[in-house]
């Protein structure tokens, strides 16, 4: 029964009652995530937005298998996540390329970890480097590339292991506004070509709405799901869609929920700093 057809219809990712608690340096316990439940479908582009410190990046690390939740579990393709696996590749924030490796070596990293031979790896990554528009930069080191180019390498590195699930942790946060827009559009193009399921973490509402099929809005710490919004904008999406009325309505709806959360987070932060200063 459990054949590929039924599997494709099942949930790609299912997070059940995730609770994440950690101990700070001053021994106080912090509840980062409180009973988070989430499911995604095959091929879906899902974004999680929330104020900083709401545990959205932690959630991504749990899905990646880099961090174990205090309670609850994450299943990907029906299997409980206990450790990192190539089927869940991560695109990190800015400085995550290995500075001592060239573009080619960085992109081939995941394959090298799997023991794929060098010749086979270079055959497989050639088209990827082409796809992210970095042909001719194969032997450049990361410091020789712009921020946008570095994140293309980052994306190619994750795609190289041919993951089912692409985990993206604010990959464009460090880029300037214009470059970020272009990268968003290119990400959608690449996503269409590869048809991966994507879990995308961002604090930018605009970015989340533009990219996603569905946007999850998270509360300030402890992170809970405030809203789960289906974004019914037509695809393929041009950047111009960001100025359309329906786009702005989505943005408005998310911002209204986030605004109070952000204020709450800021006040809590101020209180903490004041107490810390005493």
């Amino acid at each position: 029964m459990a054949q590929s057809s039924s599997q494709t219809q099942s949930n790609k990712l299912r997070a059940t009652d995730i609770r994440m608690e950690y101990t700070r340096r001053d021994r106080t316990r912090v509840l980062a995530i409180d009973r988070l439940n989430l499911e995604t479908q095959e091929g879906e582009f899902l974004s999680v937005v929330g104020p900083s410190g709401c545990g959205k990046s932690t959630f991504l690390k749990i899905v990646a298998g880099l961090v174990q939740p205090t309670e609850g579990e994450v299943e990907v393709n029906g299997e409980v996540v206990t450790k990192p696996a190539p089927s869940r590749a991560m695109v990190f924030q800015d400085p995550s390329l290995f500075p001592w490796y060239t573009v080619t070596q960085n992109v081939a990293y995941g394959l090298a970890c799997q023991g794929v031979s060098k010749t086979e790896a270079s055959e497989r990554i050639g088209p990827l480097i082409e796809m992210v528009g970095l042909r001719g930069f194969d032997n450049h080191y990361p410091y020789e590339l712009s921020g946008g180019m570095q994140q293309r390498v980052n994306l190619a590195r994750a795609l190289a292991v041919n993951p089912d699930l692409l985990l993206m942790d604010e990959p464009f946060a460090a880029l300037d506004a214009q470059t970020r827009e272009i990268m968003q559009a290119e990400l959608l193009t690449i996503w269409r070509q590869t048809s991966k399921t994507v879990l995308f973490i961002t604090h930018q509402i605009n970015e989340a709405v533009y990219l996603s099929d569905r946007v999850i809005v998270m509360s300030a710490r402890p992170g809970k799901i405030l809203d789960d919004i289906q974004v019914d904008l037509p695809r393929p999406r041009e950047l111009a869609i960001k100025r359309s009325e329906s786009f702005l309505r989505y943005e408005e709806r998310i911002w209204r929920q986030l605004e109070s959360e952000v204020r709450r987070e800021m006040e809590a932060d101020q209180l903490e700093r004041r107490q810390g200063g005493e």
Partner: peptide
């Protein structure tokens, strides 16, 4: 940070 990246790609201790 970089070790986390390596681990996420399933790098062995040796790698």
């Amino acid at each position: 940070w970089h070790l986390g990246v390596a681990r996420s790609f399933g790098a062995t201790q040796r790698k």
